[in-house]
Design a protein around this nucleic acid. Sequence first.
DNA 1: TTGAAAGCGCTAACAC
DNA 2: GTGTTAGCGCTTTCAA
Lengths: 340, 340
Amino acid sequence: MVTIPSRRKRATIHDVAVEAGVSRGTVSRVVNDEPYVSATARIAIEAAIEKVGYVPNNAARSLVMQRSEAVGFIVHEPHSLFLDDPNIGGILLGANTVLSRADYQMVSLVIDSQRDTDRVARYLSGGFVDGVIIVSARQEDPIIRVIEKLRLPAAFVGHPPDLRQLPFVGIDNRASARAITERLMQTGRKRIGMVAAALDRDSGADRLAGFTDALGDRFDPALVARVPLYTFTDGAMGMRELLDRDPLIDGVFAASDAVAAGALEALREAGRSVPGDVGIVGFDDSSWALRTQPHLSTVHQPAFGLGAAAAQCVLGQLRGEEQPAGGILLESPIVWRDSA
Amino acid sequence: MVTIPSRRKRATIHDVAVEAGVSRGTVSRVVNDEPYVSATARIAIEAAIEKVGYVPNNAARSLVMQRSEAVGFIVHEPHSLFLDDPNIGGILLGANTVLSRADYQMVSLVIDSQRDTDRVARYLSGGFVDGVIIVSARQEDPIIRVIEKLRLPAAFVGHPPDLRQLPFVGIDNRASARAITERLMQTGRKRIGMVAAALDRDSGADRLAGFTDALGDRFDPALVARVPLYTFTDGAMGMRELLDRDPLIDGVFAASDAVAAGALEALREAGRSVPGDVGIVGFDDSSWALRTQPHLSTVHQPAFGLGAAAAQCVLGQLRGEEQPAGGILLESPIVWRDSA
DNA sequence: TTGAAAGCGCTAACAC
DNA sequence: GTGTTAGCGCTTTCAA
C-alpha cells in the first residue's frame, strides 16, 4: 500500500524538522533568527525549508505569541464620502508606508452601517490586530468604546471626540481657518461668508470657529451656510444659499476644497467671476485644488504625514513607549493660488 | 494570600465553561450556534459569556479551522496613482460591501515596492486570508505566482496578465473604446487623435486597439501620443505632443478621464476651445468627469460593480462552486455630456 | 444532550 | 547547541 501524500496540505515546521533531521525547536529558532544554532543545522534547515516549501502559519504564531503583527485602519465614513475625500487616500498611504516598514500589516476596515460596526468590533475583539488607527470617528462611536475596553493601542487622525484621553494626530484646524480667512480679508473683500460643513465633526466645527475668530466684529451669522458634508454637491448647495441671502457677497471661505469646487460651480451658474467678483478659499489642498478653474487658494493638509504619524504613534505604544499627551499637531501652511 | 486576577488577560472559552458549570465543548457549540444544546445550558452559557466578557479568539479559531474568514484586496500601484485613480476606491467599496455582507473581513494590501511585495507574499502564504482580489496586477507579478502556488481562490479586476487561467471580472475596454471613438467620429471630427496611456496594462492596450478598430482606414499612427500613466499630468503632456504634431487636430480620445482632464488643461493653454475647436472624450466616468469644464463625455466604468463581482467570485470559489471560465464582463455604457 | 480528549502549528522554558 | 515538552484557545470526534 502506497501512501499518497495529500498535496493539499501545507508543510509545517514538523515536516521541515523531519526533512532536516532535527527537532522542531531548532527549526523554530532558525525561522525566527535566534542565536544558538550551529551552522550545520542552520544550513540543513534552510535547505529543508526550501525543499518542502515551508511557510510559517500566522494563526499558530499569533496564538502562541498573543499578537498578530497587524494594525487596523478604521475609516468610518459613508461610502460616498470615502470616494470623495481625497485626504483618506493619503492618510492610508502614509500609515501603510510606516507600518510596512516596521513589518506590520495594515488591515483596512471600512464602516458604513451598523452591521459593519458590529463586524469590526468583533474583529478587533478577536485579536486580529495589535493596534488601530482611526480616521474620522464620530461622537459616541461604539468602536471607540470597544477600543477602550480592549485597551487596544490606538491613534486617531483628528481630535478624538468626547474629549477622551486617547492619542491623536491632527492639524490646528481653527488656527489655519483663521489664518486663511485673514489672508482673504487682506485682499480687500468686504462681505465675507463661509460654507461651513460637517459641523458634527471637530474639524468642521473648528474651521467655523477659526473663521469667526478672524472676522471678529465683522462676523455676520447670516453669511454662514451650514451643510452636512464635505462634498462638491453640498458646496454648491451652500453657495447658492449664500448668494440668495446676500447677492453682494464677495469673499467665501469653503470648509474644504471639495466644498469650494461645488461653490465655484454655483458661482459660475450665477454668472459670477472668480476671483473677479468673488474671492474664494478652500481647505485641504487636495487633488480638487488643481482641478478647479481657477486653482484654489487653500490650506495644505499633510495627509500622508498624518497617516505616517498616527502609525508611528501606534507602533510606539506597541513598543511600550509613553506617548505625548494631548496629541501631535502637524504644520498646515497656506497655499496661495488663483481663486482669491 | 489572595490571588489577584490578571486584568490584562482576556476571558477564554474555559472561563466561560467554569462560570457556567459546563464543559468547553458545550460552550463552543453555543458560540457557534450548533444544535443539541439544552435550553438551560444555552441560557447559563450566554449569561456566563456576558459576565466574563468573553470574545472568541480568531487566531485560535483560524488555527483549528484552517481558515481565516478574511479576503485580501491587493492593489499594486505606485502611491501617486492610487491617489489619483478614482476607480480603485469604488472597486474597494464594492468588494467590501459584498464581503462584509458574507461576514468576511477585507484586508487591503497596498504594494508599492519590492519590500511590499515580499511582505504581502509572506502574508498570503501565512494563511491570514482565504482568498484574494487583485486590482491592476502587472505582467510577471510575483504575487500572481504566489497565489498560483498556494492555489488561493482569487479574482482579478481587469484581465489577468500572462493569459493565465485565473478568474477575472472586467469590462470590454476594446469594444467600449471603439464605441466611443465611433460616437466621436459621428460628431463630424476630421482629425481624431488619441492620448494612449498605460500600454503595459491590458486596459491601456485594449483602449488603443478599440480606437484603432473604430478609425479603420482613417487611423493615423502619428495622431497617437503614448504616455506611461493614467494621470492628469501625463494627459497634459500627451495633448501637448499631439498639438505639436498636428495643430489641426479636432478630436481626441483620452485613455481615461484623468488623462482627458490633463488634455483639457493643455488645450486651454493652447487657446483651443472645447468642444468648439476640439471634441474630447474620456474613459471611466470617474469623479473627474464632472469636475472638468465642460463635463466629459466618457465611458462609464462600473467600479463598485466590478469590486462586488470580484468579491462574489472569490466567495463562490470559497464555497466550492465552479467559476465561469474566461471571466465576467460588465456593461460599460457611454455617457454623453458636453466635451464632445 | 453533554463531557473528555485529541489535536491545529507554533514558541519558549527547561533539560540534556 | 539541541531535543523535549507544555501549552496558546479553539473545534470536533467519540463516548457516555
